[in-house]
Write a protein that binds this DNA or RNA. Sequence first.
DNA 1: CTGAAAGCGCTTACAG
DNA 2: CTGAAAGCGCTTACAG
Lengths: 328, 328
Amino acid sequence: MSAVARAAQVSPATVSRVLNGAPTVNDTHRERVLAAVAELNYRPNRVGRNLRRQRTSMIGVVVSDIENPHFNSMVRVVEQVAYREGYRVLLCNTDETPAKQREYLEVLEDERVLGVLLSPSDPGGPEIAALLDMGIPVVAVDRPVEDARADAVVVDNVAATRTGTDHLIERGHRRIGFISGAVEVGTGKDRLEGYRRAVAAVGAEPLVAVGGFRVEGGRRACAELLAAHPDLTALMVANNLMTIGALDELRRTGLRIPAEVALVAVDDPPWARFTEPPLTVLAQPVREMAEGAMTLLLERIEGRRSEPRQLVLPLELHVRESSAHTLS
Amino acid sequence: MSAVARAAQVSPATVSRVLNGAPTVNDTHRERVLAAVAELNYRPNRVGRNLRRQRTSMIGVVVSDIENPHFNSMVRVVEQVAYREGYRVLLCNTDETPAKQREYLEVLEDERVLGVLLSPSDPGGPEIAALLDMGIPVVAVDRPVEDARADAVVVDNVAATRTGTDHLIERGHRRIGFISGAVEVGTGKDRLEGYRRAVAAVGAEPLVAVGGFRVEGGRRACAELLAAHPDLTALMVANNLMTIGALDELRRTGLRIPAEVALVAVDDPPWARFTEPPLTVLAQPVREMAEGAMTLLLERIEGRRSEPRQLVLPLELHVRESSAHTLS
DNA sequence: CTGAAAGCGCTTACAG
DNA sequence: CTGAAAGCGCTTACAG
């Protein structure tokens, strides 16, 4: 910058003013500065600016599994909104491990990001409180966090699996298996709860196997359920990745969907309409969640709100063919 | 930091040494510093460190469509490697637009990232040269860039669609449609070229529609081809998103796969085995590409290589049922 | 409208 | 082994 100042025969302060669009700069000076910038191929160093301004332009986005279509649709929307508003996205992927979450949140704190969007692997981690202590706003997405100062955008997971299971019950099913996510996380617990309530309401026995939200776990859980309960007629699966595993396992065993096993899944990834048969799903309002989360975060960052807020959005049942068979 | 120094009754220099694990620190001092750090809940400010060290720990990752499973699998692997090696990932999504690419690359330059992984929307953008001029290494992924100083990891796209089309030709097809990506990007051009060579080799007529690599474009291109060439018996689709669109269109028209239209697609997303019928695909070696790209980038960042390198990886044909029908 | 000066939070060569 | 000092590249209150 001082090289530019020298070339333009002005002070560094004036260069800075020109670069930041300050109104109070003489036109001759402005032109000389811009010419020198072009001439020297100068690009301002944001690290210096960030230090001086005591403010970066970065938002940390911490997801638990970036390969999950649910999260990457969300990341996409978040990135679009951030870009539009002039912020950058620092992407972190915790692979569902509390240790990685802790390390990443500490890094984000040290990098002095403006705010954090977090789909927690560990909703009670003390590093969440540390961020809030430092004045860095946190918006929990998908799953709430324990610290009450954080904002949150969640969906009504209990209602979702309740609705999905009720749908199967209406179709005459009573032996309904549930492939659950990790029950240590809120989403997993709530989805299991919705299922339990639905089967309890008609006096059916809960048949549960835990698949941990990943493809392989879904396959294993499906195999377990089929082995333990050969009489089951329907499956409710708690997310899209486990659904891939479950479909693969069902295909392997040769069971027909929906005639022998009906299927309802949480999440509506792009491929759900193209499996055989197309899947009945509970679609998450991904775009609304991402936009809601960014709205809450930007309100905080820009100082327009200080009271915590929580957004609860509904999932939507899309009935397709995987549940089209009615038991008689 | 000066507060910590005061509390520990040492100089800021000593605090810095303790925090950075310098060996030459008296144990008493070390303990006093660590106690003060814990007491004051001190977290070092990386912005200050970055400025002083003239070095950040950030890698820019610029993809053209983060919602595409191909790229998000890649981003996942990149993130894992970066984390393991102590680097952070700044994620940028260009939505296939040169303008967004330019803006993001300028931002990455200004943020003084250590290096950039770029799947270019505009392989000739002058901002790529600007990064290299500034000494920031660039590794092109998926598609090469024009500047010869950049490293690159690409797949052999010409061979891929050539192989896929030859596979259809062996099954007796001669009226083979091609749903192309954007031909302005290398991948799109090369995939089209492989198809052209294959049909030319048997004297068949090339039947091409451009779908631009996105779902809607794929649907439109498929409809176009079916309308213009009602006699076609097979389709080769240049990526996974357009395949979703094409499948949807085929389903709408009621054409049976593979009996009435055979289908081969580039990319092997998780759902490709669960469509009806399961898809014959050309699988990209995504993990190898991401790991290769990170290896090249880290070699540059850590100064272990200065000559440009290019990695070319093969795609693999996975024959499934969407091409199982042989024409007689 | 402009410049000289201070300072953001660190790190590190230097002297002791 | 330690501290005082300089300085990374900016921005901005202040004085003129």
